Simulated scan of single mutants.
Amino acid sequence: MLVVRPIAPQDYAALYTCAVESGHGFTSLPVDETLLQRRIARAQEAFARAHVSEPGEEGYLFVMEDTKSGEIVGVSGIEAAVGLTDSFYHYRLGKVVHHSKELDIYNAQETLTLCNDYTGVSELCTLFLREPFRKNMNGRVLSRFRMLFMAEFRQRFSPLAIAEMRGVSDENGESPFWGWLQQHFFRMDFTQADYLTGIGEKAFVAQLMPQHPVYVSLLPPEAQAVIGQVHENTRPALKMLQAEGFRCRGYVDIFDAGPTVEAEVANIKSVRESKRLPVKIGPVTESARYIVCNTRVADFRAIQARIQVHDDHVVMEARHSTALRVEDGDQVRIVSLTGEQ
């Protein structure tokens, strides 16, 4: 059985493996021992905080574990509030109009403006599922359980949530968009810049990035073509978030121009449709597949399971209640895995 739980110090080796396998452009999982150990420590602190009244510096990091083998098969995270200590940069797509009434010329131009507009919002991040386990809707579980966690502990998160989508890069990790920035403003390749950002070294962004709006039409065609586009491997994740109600509002990554999508937490489909019900342990008939989680922070657990849902309770098998660490009468939060209620 695959169970999602808070990351623990003994998961470091598995997290490092995920970082290596995630490849270029996966900023939140750089191959760096110090940073990965720091992320585990931050997560431990976040889960240990029993009373949180508003979002702060908490970074929640979860792993998906195969309970039979003990193998870690994926990782997923939530940042409670981004940009509170380290600046959180985006490019905002805008438009300016140049108009001469006398010459009868009207010219609308798209622009990119460096901004920190998403400071303080919550971020769904660090979603990576190892290739052999990309089946049986495991990817949906690893992404969507976070929405149940946010629904259960609303005070820990901002009313607005975002997710940064990996932008277009080639097999060598080179980004067409970065190529233009590198030529004119930086003296480092894309992978180095991406890595520095991932480990929190962001001062160079403010120091070297163009401070005035950039006219998109001045960029080379190959750079223009990838603005707001996602990496091929990221398309399923984007499609899943769009089904949850996330939309791009014109913000893109400053390095690879991948889109950032946003949604009000209260309007996320899985948040809206989730239910909190007590458990009855017993045989299950006429079941449907659900994502199910308990209602604890430090001892959080989530699984996919076939359960029987009634108006005032859910029925689940003992093996599932054991995995969730719940007993008869305990509360769980559920949402349909397939979209059927």
Score class of each variant (00 low, 15 high):
G94F: 00
L112Q: 00
V3M: 06
L208D: 04
D253Q: 00
I72M: 04
N136R: 15
E244Y: 05
L127Q: 08
Y60S: 05
S143Y: 04
V20L: 09
E327Q: 09
L142R: 07
V279F: 02
A302W: 10
A108P: 10
E57T: 08
A193Y: 01
G258T: 03
Q44P: 10
L142H: 09
F88C: 13
S169W: 14
T191A: 12
H99N: 14
A257T: 00
F149C: 06
Q192W: 12
E340M: 10
E110H: 15
E286A: 14
G139W: 06
T234N: 02
I227Q: 07
E71T: 07
R156H: 04
H310G: 10
A263L: 06
I334Q: 11
L148R: 00
M147G: 08
R154Q: 09
R333K: 05
N138K: 10
H90L: 13
D32M: 09
A19W: 10
G74M: 02
R49F: 11
F300K: 03
L2W: 01
V314H: 12
L196E: 15
L93T: 02
P30V: 04
V314D: 13
P221Y: 13
R276A: 05
T17C: 15
F190H: 11
T191E: 13
N107H: 15
E21V: 07
E65Y: 05
T338R: 10
V315R: 11
Y91S: 05
V314G: 11
D328P: 15
L36W: 07
H231K: 06
F62M: 02
G200N: 04
Y60M: 06
T34P: 13
M150E: 00
D11H: 04
W178C: 08
M165P: 11
S270E: 05
A206M: 12
T67G: 11
P159E: 04
S336K: 08
N136S: 13
Q109K: 09
A305K: 02
F190G: 08
F26M: 09
S69I: 01
L337K: 10
F300V: 03
D194N: 07
Q192S: 11
A298H: 12
L142M: 07
V75M: 01
F177Y: 03
G56L: 05
V214N: 04
A302Q: 10
Y195A: 06
I72A: 04
R134L: 06
V20W: 12
A14G: 01
E131R: 10
Y91Q: 06
F246W: 07
T197F: 15
I40F: 07
V309D: 05
A305E: 05
S122F: 07
P278W: 05
V82M: 09
V230W: 10
D117W: 10
D330R: 10
F157M: 00
V252E: 00
S28M: 02
A203K: 08
P9M: 06
E327N: 11
E171W: 08
F204V: 05
P132W: 00
R166Q: 04
Q331D: 14
